[in-house]
């Protein structure tokens, strides 16, 4: 049988609701096998050589699925993967219905001035990231927009990590330190004057993991020099 690109997925996506378009991928909402689903489509980048583009896109798709699985196995909430298509580079993920981003949550909670709740949240984020780094998953794009919060009926809320597109597996404290550094930069610029809150996050990160002291030490180094170690690229 001739190997050809199926038109089924492009046709399906043309009827789906486009939620966001970034530099890397488009994110759609649709119903898939009867469930509310998020589809992440890594479209071809015309500015790259086709062979290189295919390779990079394929690797990122694979990496994203692997990291989600690894996190879930360790008990870290991340969306369920329903289906992956490696020809159109689409990942079909569970939609976390009724959730909001940690970013929005912090912004709205700060207006209503509930510092206790935010402190709780910062600690929770610190614990989850410590757990993720214990599994040697480096997220690569930690921001408060890539964390979702879903409030449950029992008053508890569940924290999900999303967007593992730039993630990779590494045991190096250096890589984990850079991961936290990226979050620190993003956190403090999206939420001004939250230095004490972020400190709380780091403290709970440090308390939650045995491997954390080496990472925090690296974080201090990275702060002095920036995230690029080799000064190349």
């Amino acid at each position: 049988m001739a190997q050809e690109k199926s038109m089924a997925i492009p046709e399906f996506l043309s009827k789906a609701e486009l939620l966001k378009q970034g530099a890397e991928a488009r994110v759609y909402r649709a119903e898939f096998l009867g469930k509310p689903t998020i589809v992440k489509e890594r479209f071809p980048k015309r500015y790259r050589h086709p062979v290189l583009d295919e390779k990079l896109t394929h690797r990122r798709t694979v990496q994203e699925v692997r990291s989600i699985l690894r996190c879930r196995r360790a008990g870290i909430s991340a969306p369920v993967v329903y289906f992956v298509d490696y020809t159109s580079h689409c990942i079909f993920l569970e939609e976390i219905v009724g959730s909001s981003t940690v970013r929005d949550h912090i912004a709205s909670t700060r207006q209503s001035d509930c510092s206790n709740e935010l402190a709780w949240l910062a600690e929770r984020v610190g614990q989850i990231l410590a757990k993720m780094h214990e599994e040697d998953v480096v997220h690569g794009d930690l921001t408060t927009s890539n964390m979702l919060l879903r409030h449950q009926e029992d008053g508890e809320s569940e924290l999900f990590l999303i967007d593992f597109g730039l993630s990779y597996i590494s045991a190096l404290p250096e890589d984990k330190g850079v991961d936290l550094y990226v979050l620190e930069k993003a956190f403090l610029s999206t939420h001004p004057n939250t230095e004490t809150l972020f400190e709380r996050l780091l403290k709970s990160y440090a308390a939650a993991s045995k491997k954390s002291s080496a990472v925090i030490k690296k974080l201090d180094e990275v702060r002095l020099r920036g995230r690029k170690r080799s000064m190349v690229g």
Binding site: I68, L69, R72, A78, V84, F92
Partner: peptide, 16 residues
């Protein structure tokens, strides 16, 4: 199983 149902875990493995 703490972060989802048995079905979630099974489906993730099948897909990946």
């Amino acid at each position: 199983e703490k972060c989802g149902t048995l079905l979630d875990a099974v489906v993730c493995r099948m897909a990946s």
